[in-house]
């Protein structure tokens, strides 16, 4: 069953720019342009794109705090902006750069307030709190005011806060921003667990591709308001203009090898680097090199996911 349905949704903003002291130009910006996708219950989807691509606009529309200019949106069967309050009980939101906790209150008090806001039954609240305190190692932090917490500690508090009312959907907007390697890894472990054990559907925006690699099987790439890729993370390698590299060690230094479908990008003594499109098979190229030259060793380098995405962004400019 689709939990999130986005059907040809667009969102435009009117920006007024000063062109001279008196004149102002009116400019229509399409933050999200004819966007369509669905997310099934229990999925964990990475939502990536460069700054200004329309990620946050999409999340804001999905939470109901922004109305689409056109198109149709359904989250858990509800129209987000029309049923914002009802929907609020079914979603949890974490913004890496904002907190939903109260600065001056001990973490425990923030949780207690959230219990009242979302009317979580006391027994359920205690169960959830116990689980999160254990998994997120919050025990020593509960009595500390949020302003005294480090970024990583605050983030753990924020994630627990977003899940106390058992939401069906969790939106995470750059949850690992600014965290150190250990905190990031702990957070990812927790998210995997929540997704698997509680069947929480997760939509994750991030600039850290390791988050995606470790958490999401499916990734959506948005740029200039368009969805440019939607599929398995592994498929991204083969997408667009990504290239793989065949590194060949010849027995003796030689001029650049000449095979169909690949180009030599670098020669260093007997070692040569041959690039070919990522979606092409390596087999015929390896066969051609082996047939025409005396090969001592060879290896294939997959493109780094960051390079693939960088290439994807660049191609669309």
């Amino acid at each position: 069953m689709s939990l999130i349905e986005v059907d040809r949704v667009s969102r435009t903003f009117v920006v007024r720019r000063k062109t001279s002291t008196l004149r102002r130009a009116r400019q229509v910006v399409r933050a999200v342009d004819d966007l369509s996708f669905t997310v099934t219950a229990g999925e964990m989807v990475g939502y990536i794109g460069p700054n200004g691509a329309g990620k946050s606009t999409t999340i804001k529309m999905l939470t109901g705090i922004l109305v689409p200019s056109s198109g149709r949106l359904r989250v858990a069967g509800l129209d987000p902006s029309a049923a914002r309050v009802e929907l609020a009980r079914r979603i949890g939101v974490v913004f890496g750069q904002r907190t939903t906790l109260w600065w001056d209150l001990p973490l425990r008090d923030s949780f207690a307030l959230l219990r009242r806001i979302y009317r979580v039954p006391l027994t359920r609240f205690r169960q959830n709190l116990d689980t999160f305190v254990e998994l997120l190692d919050l025990g020593d932090l509960l009595h500390r005011p949020v302003r005294q917490l480090s970024l990583g500690q605050r983030m753990r508090g924020d994630i627990a806060a977003a899940l106390l009312h058992d939401p069906d959907i969790l939106y995470l907007d750059e949850p690992t921003i600014g965290l150190d390697v250990v905190s990031k890894s702990a957070l990812r472990g927790f998210l995997r667990e929540v997704n698997a054990e509680r069947n929480v559907t997760v939509l994750l925006t991030t600039h850290d591709l390791v988050d995606i690699e470790q958490l999401c099987r499916r990734v959506m790439v948005i740029d200039h308001g368009h969805l440019v890729y939607d599929g398995e993370l592994a498929g991204l390698h083969a997408f667009g203009n990504a290239r793989r590299t065949l590194v060949v060690d010849l027995s003796d230094p030689a001029p650049p090898v000449d095979v169909r479908g690949a180009t030599v990008t670098r020669v260093d003594g007997p070692r040569q680097w041959l690039e070919f499109p990522a979606q092409a098979s390596a087999a015929p190229i390896v066969a051609a090199v082996a047939a025409g030259y005396d090969v001592a060793d060879l290896s294939i380098q997959e493109p780094a996911i960051e390079d693939v995405i960088r290439q994807l962004y660049l191609d669309r400019r």
């Binding site: 109901g64 609020a88 939101v93 904002r98």
Partner: peptide, 12 residues
């Protein structure tokens, strides 16, 4: 700061 957006999606 725009944090009011968080208050707005709460059921309060």
């Amino acid at each position: 700061t725009g944090d009011v957006a968080i208050d707005l999606y709460r059921p309060t």
